[in-house]
Design a protein around this nucleic acid. Structure first.
Lengths: 131, 131
DNA sequence: GCGACAACGACAATGATTGTCAAAAACGCA
DNA sequence: TGCGTTTTTGACAATCATTGTCGTTGTCGC
């Protein structure tokens, strides 16, 4: 459904996608733009932003909005999951919580809410960063 | 520990606090500033921001960062809880999920993370806004 | 009442993100 | 393969919430 989009395959889109594929942690748009430049890829910052937005809309990457910072993007495993992030070093573990999903849906339904979604992030200090 | 703060009781701080006490939903700093002006209270925008930050740090109000918008502040019930927010009209229900808290802590502990906190927001369309 | 010191506030600065629009590239089709 | 249409690009300007600055003002302890 809704195939009027006709997304075109461009060098820039591939470059961003490829970069995300080999990156491990979360990175900001400006970060990714800088990395592409260092590689010699000629991609505009505006394009990086738009490409990331597109990928996020398509569900191919995850977006995190840390308090007081820029948006961070990351290529993640498919399906719904959440993140356990170290405050100090940023190390991230993907976690799945089926019980949480169920709980959220049930609570929303109890209040008559429909078309439910949710956001959940867990922050902590990872073993390496614990003194 | 750390009681060198010596928070002073000022007219402006009281005004912001009082306004929040009678407001129901979430409001942005700019919103609150405009309301104070309409009331004849003379409070600077910078001060509103700083006061809200202070209250948030003290845990007296909650902050929500909706995607693509400004920060929203609200005076909430005490203790830890989450929000079920209508995407259309902004109506908010406070929900408590002890099981979620436990789950988050357990998951974090399993990965060796300490000093754990988390953020959780549920979005949906409330009964009134459902066609 | 007085002095020290935090809080205020008008304004400037910051900085990520988005809008603009002419030029370039990609795709469908013959 | 060549051509026209349509999307995409990207340099730059614009936006706008939030934060920094710093002289002034008001509070609080004494």
């Amino acid at each position: 459904m809704s195939e009027g989009t006709a997304v075109r395959n461009t060098r820039q889109r591939s470059a961003v996608s490829a970069l995300l594929a080999e990156m491990e942690g979360f990175h900001s748009a400006q970060d990714l733009h800088a990395m592409l430049r260092e590689r010699g890829e000629r991609v505009g910052l505006t394009t990086v932003y738009r490409t990331l937005q597109g990928l996020a809309d398509a569900g191919e990457i995850d977006v995190m909005r840390p308090p007081g910072g820029e948006h961070l993007y990351r290529r993640c495993s498919e399906g719904h999951h959440h993140h356990l992030v170290c405050r100090a070093c940023g190390r991230t573990v993907e976690v799945a919580g089926p019980a949480v999903e169920t709980w959220a849906d049930r609570v929303a339904a109890q209040h008559g809410y429909t078309d439910v979604s949710h956001t959940l992030e867990i922050f902590g200090t990872c073993p390496t960063c614990t003194p």
